[in-house]
């Protein structure tokens, strides 16, 4: 039962990681910018939700908080990321990392250094019983919402006209522009979408991880690893890599509890060794 419980926890964790990594991957794919400020949108999502859910209710706050994060994403693009388009990806990494660190300090100043608890919603508070196996209803709720987010992004990129432009832009942004598509606008919208998703993921994680200023940092490296493992811009790849990392971290405690934290890095090293573009990656604009 413990093994099954850890396995399910791994899937839930993997889906949250995959949702965050998706935004990371899309932004990197269409703009060539390694946006480390993505982590802060995860934190903002959790804080905004914590600040408003008792006043407006759980479900309205679940929409309003990521919408506010999306607005932040818009301004991050205009004020920070736009400056590094077309430059060495290292510039983007440094400027967005610096921005994220600054924002983390700002959050600590405004909301204080204390950890804040968020209750699970009443409709998902409790356990589901299968025979003699109990599992948290809230974790199943997280899995459901995260899976819907991943599926929605997949549908958007695979089935919509604009999604086709996004996919093409990940391969050759110059040609997409020469065919009459406004790359600047596309990059803004993708960053807004990525911020919304990361903000929502932050909300989902809040009742389990608690709300704290450093929560974005703790999801940054797993997300980055997942992008590398899954392949830039590949949604199925991101999902598979997210689940691999989640399950490894969760079940690793059964095998070697002291080495759990390093396991995703070993996994990433192995995957990138055999598949340099990641599990399902293709040639892309940063090559």
């Amino acid at each position: 039962m413990l093994t099954l419980s850890l396995f399910l926890n791994g899937i839930v964790l993997g889906l949250v990681y995959a949702a965050v990594a998706l935004g990371f991957s899309l932004v990197l794919g269409v703009s060539g910018v390694i946006n480390f400020a993505h982590s802060i949108t995860f934190t903002f999502g959790a804080y905004f939700f914590w600040a408003m859910y008792k006043h407006v209710g759980y479900l309205p706050a679940m929409l309003l908080a990521p919408a506010a994060v999306a607005v932040i994403g818009f301004f991050v693009e205009r004020l920070v990321i736009r400056r590094v388009y077309g430059q060495d990806p290292l510039f983007g990494l440094l400027i967005t990392l610096g921005f994220a660190m600054g924002m983390e300090e700002l959050i600590r100043m405004v909301f204080g250094p204390a950890t804040h608890n968020v209750d699970a919603p009443s409709f998902a508070n409790g356990v589901i019983i299968f025979g003699n196996f109990l599992y948290s209803q809230y974790r199943l709720f997280i899995a459901l919402v995260a899976a819907i987010m991943v599926a929605a992004v997949w549908l958007f990129t695979e089935k919509s006209r604009y999604g086709t432009v996004v996919k093409a832009g990940m391969f050759n942004s110059e040609m997409v522009g020469a065919l009459g598509h406004d790359l600047y606008k596309m990059r803004i919208w993708i960053l807004v979408l990525g911020s919304f998703i990361a903000g929502l993921a932050g909300i989902l994680a809040a009742p389990i991880w608690s709300v704290k200023s450093g929560m974005g940092s703790s999801i940054l490296m797993p997300s980055f690893l997942i992008v590398l493992m899954g392949g830039l811009g590949s949604i199925p790849g991101t999902l598979v890599a997210g689940l691999m990392v989640g399950i490894t971290l969760s079940m690793g405690v059964l095998v070697a509890p002291r080495f759990v934290d390093i396991m995703p890095y070993i996994l990433m090293g192995l995957i990138v060794y055999f598949w340099p573009r990641g599990l399902m990656g293709q040639q892309n604009i940063i090559e």
Binding site: T164, V165, K167, A168, M175, H181, Q282
Partner: peptide, 21 residues
């Protein structure tokens, strides 16, 4: 362009769609 620059990651129909305006 001289080196064609098709999008290998999407279908031919969608490649055509990208040019449509």
């Amino acid at each position: 362009p001289e080196d064609r620059k098709i999008f290998p990651n999407i279908t031919i129909k969608r490649n055509l769609q990208l040019g449509e305006k």
